[in-house]
Design a protein around this nucleic acid. Structure first.
Lengths: 156, 156
DNA sequence: CCTAATCTCTCGATGTTCGAGATTGTTGGT
DNA sequence: ACCAACAATCTCGAACATCGAGAGATTAGG
């Protein structure tokens, strides 16, 4: 078995990667005149769209951990720069469903899609077996991390 | 070679991991009554301490990307709750070097040290060869990511 | 020494977030 | 059909984080 110091160093590599990935979001934010929260919100909306769903204001607030007052301000900002549209849900007219604009999808696609493309390309030098190891590693480490962030939450 | 869809899914796993790791920091923040920036600052100071260095106010600002006015406020906050001490650098008395308090090191060690321990333990099920693959993967992906966050910065 | 550069801090302005409560819409019991 | 309870979003005012400009103290270089 690899010695603990080496394993600890891999944990540090993991954290370093997350710092750099965070910087990508930061960069997207500054290029498009947004703040960190706005980017997290756009990503959440884009993720939902990729699943074929449209987030409501409330769901967005849960995704980015903001109170309703802040979500209203957040959506106001995104709407003002033309990245999202508010649309009353016809099923339940209390709800506001959030639709991404073309410009937002284009901007997001260029920035994050480009990164995804490069990452996928960089994985081209790995064999099937190696990628299987990587996949297991990422999954298992994520599980360990999740146990820490959810440690002693009030049982729902 | 693994098909692109599978590789793309691994990229998503990578992002998911970073989201969860972020949640760990968020949790530490809320438990200790700090905001995200404060946590990033504490981590930066702890990292420096681990390297045997003491950050100055300016270096901290660079590490967390804040202007000097905000760094002053940030250190004020951390000092008020007793996590850091300001100490005039005797070599250059314009500088303020930041010292972590015992309480901050204890709190940080418990929270992040515990996570690191669990991560290292979870790596125990991997062979040397497998961890070598993981290491190469993390390093190469970080490089790709860095190229995106530093894309067209003004050449220093 | 005298000037320019460096490091931190102060001040005022702007923007983000929150808590409390109002508004609008839905649901279920009678 | 009505009314009460609940739900989703929004408005308002206060608290706080960040910034730009510039002041004060210190160092480095002629």
């Amino acid at each position: 078995m690899t010695d603990p110091a080496e394993r600890h160093e891999i944990a540090l590599l993991l954290r370093r990667l997350t710092v750099e990935l965070d910087a990508v979001g930061s960069r997207f934010a500054s290029v498009h005149g947004l703040n960190r929260t706005d980017v997290r919100a756009l990503v959440a909306i884009m993720d939902a769209a990729r699943r074929g769903e449209a987030l409501t204001a409330g769901q967005l607030g849960e995704a980015v951990d903001l109170r309703s007052a802040s979500v209203t301000a957040l959506v106001d900002r995104l709407e003002k720069v033309g990245h999202v549209r508010r649309e009353r849900d016809p099923e339940d007219r209390r709800r506001v469903s959030l639709q991404l604009s073309e410009s937002a999808m284009a901007a997001g696609g260029e920035h994050f899609g480009g990164l995804a493309r490069d990452l996928v390309a960089a994985m081209g030098t790995y064999s099937d077996d190696e990628l299987a190891v990587v996949r297991r590693f990422l999954t298992e480490m994520t599980d360990v991390i999740m146990r820490h962030s959810r440690a002693d939450e009030p049982p729902s």
